[in-house]
Design a protein around this nucleic acid. Structure first.
Lengths: 252, 252
DNA sequence: ATTGACATTGACGTTACGTAAAGGTATATG
DNA sequence: CATATACCTTTACGTAACGTCAATGTCAAT
């Protein structure tokens, strides 16, 4: 049995374009080309096409199918298993999307959500403004104009991820510090961990970190009552505790 | 606050290409273009981008999002509901694919399945061969070489759907005929329905249908014992009953 | 002036075809 | 034998949402 392109297309219930495309990508070549340039398919090609369509129905890509067809029965089943996994993942993805949409609808959101970033932008500006307002002068005195400018610039260029990270860091510092304070030992493991976190946090703002600057900052946390208040809010005496811990870290 | 393309991209955690594309398709144009041709975005654009990304996370298409942004809060939620439906459908589709794959794996198929079409091809050829073997000569005598050739050609060119349809038709004819025979009335509703089905069935094989040819065929069903056996297998006397019914149909 | 980071436009690649367009071939019919 | 019709061919653009060069211009700092 020989088939022209349309006949084969009708049998398989696909378009002739599809067959030409399959020829083009080499997944199904005609048995021969007639003298007038027509594609002629044989029954062997019918079989191959059947297989292609069989695998296509599962959503496999044609390149994958092409590989599969050259493989053994065993690896074909493996390919199907692989694909099944992918489908499971896709379904989970869709499940998540559906849940999110439902949440959104339930919350009557859709419009207000974006204020998130507005907030974020606001936070960043507030962070700079606050710093400027509260400590601008003094810090500029102690660390020089450059350092402060660079710090502000760094804040402006922060991405949301970075912002979220430093927010998280700040929280972690406070938590660790609170725990460490209870031990009463600024040389202890917890206190030193708090110092390390604090260092990491500083590195987000400072262009170059130095232990001396870090120690000086620790002293400032005690000397400046606004800083002192922030840390003593965690627990009275925390500012001094942190300073001591930093000094111990610096001597190591 | 003004942003260059990279700064906005970093804030949103997307690529600059994406922002250029959004500009291109008109979903997010920069606030202004600098003298050097740079895209400059303002905080309003940040908000719009946030909204775009908000809806994009649900898998909505950008054109849909574009529409949504121009709409009211209410229709936004409707859009989400619509999209949720689509996602449900998609998930069902995936479920079906997974089930099919599981079935296939369980059956250890993957290679043997394609024999389905082989069978189909075989059936078509068998249909022709059988007809040739059994009735070839006589039918050729009665209806001429042309009619027979065309009929065979038609069979060869049938698609699987058509094949399935005539298979179904044949079954329906037999069923209707059996019921009609019980009524004993070849002029009755059931018998005439059987004739109509028979006519439809014939039209698959015949190039042009004529009542005369139909009636002649009915007579042949009685005269030729092989045909007669086929119909009398349904019930003795069925061949004659069908012939009579066709004659009545012809006289209407 | 140079360097490096950043900007621009243009254009091809991705997937699996749908959809013309322009033109050749096979076949039945008058 | 000409013609109509059905079928064939190749070429090529369009689809969605960007990724990825390439060639080239601009900004800021050294």
């Amino acid at each position: 049995m020989e088939y022209t392109i349309l006949k084969l297309a009708k049998i398989a219930n696909i378009s002739t374009r599809t067959l030409r495309y399959y020829d083009e990508i080499g997944i199904l070549k005609p048995k021969r080309i007639s003298s007038s340039g027509y594609r002629i398919y044989g029954s062997e090609e019918v079989d191959i096409l059947q297989q292609i369509l069989f695998y296509r129905q599962f959503g496999l890509e044609l390149t994958e199918i092409k590989d599969i067809l050259n493989n053994t029965e065993f690896s074909r089943i493996n390919a199907l298993r692989d694909h099944k996994k992918k489908l499971y993942e896709k379904r989970e993805q869709i499940d998540i999307l559906i849940k999110n949409i439902e949440k959104t609808i339930a919350a009557g959101e859709g419009r207000t959500i974006m204020s998130d970033n507005e907030k974020f932008e606001g936070f960043k500006q507030k962070l700079i403004d606050e710093n400027e307002e509260k400590y601008g002068e003094e810090i500029r005195e102690k660390y020089g104009k450059e350092t402060v400018e660079k710090s502000n610039q760094k804040i402006k260029n922060m991405t949301k991820e970075q912002y979220d990270k430093i927010s998280g860091l700040a929280a972690e510092i406070n938590l660790t510090l609170a725990q460490a304070y209870k031990t009463g030992n600024p040389a202890g493991e917890l206190a030193q961990k708090a110092v390390l976190l604090h260092k990491e946090w500083l590195c987000f703002y400072w262009d170059k970190y130095s232990i001396k600057a870090h120690a000086a900052l620790g002293q400032m946390y005690v000397d400046d009552e606004r800083f002192k208040k922030y840390y003593d809010d965690i627990h009275p005496g925390c500012a001094e505790f942190l300073r001591d811990a930093i000094l111990i870290y610096a001597k190591k």
